[in-house]
Simulated scan of single mutants.
Amino acid sequence: MHPPELRDRAIAMHADGVPFRLIWRTLGLPPRTVGNWLYGERARKRRERQPDDRCPRCADPRRPPDAPAAYAYLLGQYLGDGHIVRARRTVLLAVSCDNRYPGIIAEVDAAMRSCGARSVHHRAKIGCTAVSALWNHWPCLFPQHGPGHKHERPIELADWQEPIVGEHAEPFVRGLIHSDGCRFDNRVTVRGRTYSYPRYMFTNESAHIMDLCRRSLDRLGVEWRMSRRNTLSVAKRASVLRLDGFVGAKS
């Protein structure tokens, strides 16, 4: 008799689209045992009793995301350093996070779980960690997914996303800056004297994503300017303090 925790983990992996062979190999179990858990008569009845209603866009009736603030943050991260890949049987959402900031890695992990992922995986790369989760419904939550680079195609919010980003502009901006932005001390020399002041920068090649960032900053009363075509700067003291209240230095 195998522990029920193993069966629950196998079922969760299967629901996330993990291939059958990888499930029984990962858990170190006989294929027949896992097959009975996933495809047997009991499994069929269990699925009928417990339909997967994690996707708010496929629910009847449709509903907003269950954790809108976490969704807004994950949307900002996805628009910055995230991508969605369709595999043979499922869909992978991955966000690349700098290894220097374990706090951000943990926050992305938590946001994915809040938005519907049953399990989240961390894959180490050179200088970064890919935080990823398998789920067939990621394209439902991120309709901005499409072929090609984000800066080469239109990026617009769906009607149902607009009120979420409007109401949760702070976590959305936090996600954008955590992915493609930074806070640093800017040093300038005037008449031989060196001055230092904190400054935020956000860089993105997509004009549409940049516009989403500017609109959210306007909602929050944060003054910004475009220092270059693809770079936004926040340098005024009051605006920096406003961002410090919900973004701050990366950690």
Results as ranks from 00 to 15, higher is better:
1 M>L: 10
4 P>E: 14
6 L>A: 09
11 I>Y: 12
13 M>E: 06
13 M>N: 01
15 A>Y: 05
17 G>E: 11
22 L>E: 15
22 L>W: 06
22 L>Y: 07
23 I>S: 01
23 I>C: 02
26 T>A: 10
27 L>F: 13
27 L>S: 13
29 L>A: 14
32 R>H: 09
32 R>S: 12
32 R>F: 09
33 T>R: 12
34 V>C: 02
38 L>Q: 04
43 A>D: 04
43 A>R: 05
43 A>F: 05
46 R>Y: 13
46 R>I: 04
55 C>F: 09
57 R>M: 07
59 A>M: 09
64 P>R: 06
64 P>T: 04
65 P>H: 00
66 D>G: 10
67 A>K: 08
67 A>P: 11
67 A>V: 08
70 A>W: 03
70 A>M: 02
78 Y>F: 14
80 G>L: 02
84 I>S: 09
84 I>V: 10
86 R>I: 04
86 R>N: 05
86 R>C: 10
88 R>W: 12
88 R>G: 14
90 T>C: 07
92 L>T: 14
93 L>W: 05
93 L>G: 05
93 L>M: 10
95 V>L: 13
96 S>P: 04
98 D>S: 07
99 N>A: 12
99 N>D: 15
99 N>I: 09
100 R>C: 06
100 R>D: 14
102 P>R: 15
103 G>F: 11
103 G>P: 03
108 V>D: 15
109 D>E: 15
110 A>I: 03
112 M>F: 06
116 G>R: 12
117 A>L: 10
119 S>K: 09
122 H>I: 11
122 H>A: 13
123 R>T: 14
125 K>H: 14
127 G>M: 11
132 S>P: 05
135 W>Y: 07
137 H>N: 13
139 P>K: 00
140 C>V: 02
144 Q>A: 09
144 Q>K: 00
144 Q>R: 00
145 H>M: 04
145 H>G: 11
145 H>Q: 10
146 G>W: 14
148 G>P: 05
149 H>G: 03
151 H>I: 00
151 H>V: 00
151 H>T: 00
152 E>M: 05
154 P>G: 01
162 E>S: 10
162 E>L: 12
163 P>M: 07
171 P>K: 02
173 V>P: 02
174 R>L: 07
176 L>M: 05
179 S>P: 02
182 C>W: 02
182 C>A: 06
183 R>Q: 11
184 F>R: 13
184 F>C: 10
185 D>H: 13
185 D>E: 15
186 N>V: 08
193 R>L: 13
193 R>G: 03
199 R>V: 13
200 Y>W: 05
200 Y>K: 00
201 M>S: 15
201 M>V: 10
203 T>G: 03
206 S>W: 06
208 H>V: 00
210 M>C: 07
210 M>D: 02
211 D>I: 02
211 D>F: 08
213 C>N: 03
214 R>E: 08
215 R>W: 10
215 R>Y: 06
216 S>T: 00
219 R>G: 09
220 L>W: 08
222 V>Y: 01
226 M>R: 10
227 S>C: 07
230 N>Q: 11
231 T>W: 02
231 T>H: 06
231 T>V: 12
231 T>C: 14
232 L>M: 03
236 K>Y: 07
238 A>E: 15
240 V>L: 11
241 L>M: 14
243 L>Q: 07
243 L>M: 11
246 F>E: 06
249 A>L: 14
